Simulated scan of single mutants.
Amino acid sequence: MIYGTPELEPADKAVLVEIEDMRRDLRHRLAEPHRWDGQLRRQLQARAIQGSNSIEGYRASVEDIESIMLGEEPLETSAAVTREIAGYQQALTYIRGLAGARAFRFDAGLLHALNFMIIGHHHDKSPGIVRPGGIYVRNSATGEVVYEGPDAEEVPGLIAELVDWLNDGDLEHPAYVRAAMAHFNLVAIHPWRDGNGRMSRALQTLVLGRDGITTPEFCSIEEWLGLGENTVDYYRVLRTVQQGSWSPHGETLPWLRFCLRAHHLQAQLVRRRLAEAGQVWMLLEEQVDADGLHTRCVSALYQVFVSRRLRRATYQADEALSQGQAARDLRELAARGWLTPYGETKGRFYAPGPRMERVKADFAGRAEPLRDPYRELLTA
Results as ranks from 00 to 15, higher is better:
2 I>S: 15
5 T>L: 13
6 P>S: 03
7 E>V: 06
11 A>M: 04
13 K>W: 05
13 K>M: 15
16 L>F: 14
19 I>C: 04
22 M>A: 03
23 R>I: 15
23 R>T: 15
34 H>Q: 06
39 Q>E: 04
41 R>M: 11
43 Q>L: 09
44 L>N: 04
62 V>F: 15
74 P>D: 02
77 T>Q: 06
78 S>N: 07
83 R>K: 09
86 A>S: 14
90 Q>F: 02
92 L>H: 07
93 T>C: 01
107 D>G: 09
111 L>S: 02
112 H>E: 08
115 N>L: 10
116 F>N: 12
119 I>R: 03
122 H>C: 14
125 K>N: 14
133 G>E: 05
134 G>Q: 15
142 T>I: 10
144 E>I: 08
144 E>D: 06
144 E>A: 13
151 D>L: 08
151 D>Y: 12
153 E>R: 11
156 P>D: 04
163 V>P: 00
168 D>I: 10
175 A>W: 03
183 H>V: 11
186 L>H: 09
187 V>Q: 12
196 N>R: 15
203 L>S: 13
205 T>H: 07
209 G>N: 01
210 R>S: 08
211 D>L: 03
212 G>I: 08
219 C>E: 13
223 E>C: 01
226 G>Q: 07
232 V>N: 10
233 D>L: 06
233 D>G: 15
240 T>N: 14
247 S>Q: 07
248 P>Q: 09
249 H>P: 01
253 L>K: 11
253 L>A: 15
255 W>V: 06
255 W>E: 04
257 R>C: 02
258 F>V: 08
259 C>R: 10
262 A>K: 05
268 Q>C: 10
271 R>I: 09
279 Q>R: 14
283 L>M: 05
290 A>L: 12
291 D>L: 10
295 T>M: 13
296 R>S: 00
301 L>A: 02
306 V>E: 06
308 R>C: 13
310 L>N: 01
312 R>A: 02
319 E>Y: 00
322 S>W: 05
324 G>W: 01
329 D>F: 01
331 R>E: 05
334 A>R: 02
336 R>I: 00
338 W>E: 00
345 T>W: 12
346 K>E: 07
346 K>S: 12
356 M>P: 03
360 K>M: 13
363 F>L: 03
365 G>N: 03
366 R>W: 07
369 P>L: 04
373 P>D: 08
374 Y>C: 01
375 R>C: 04
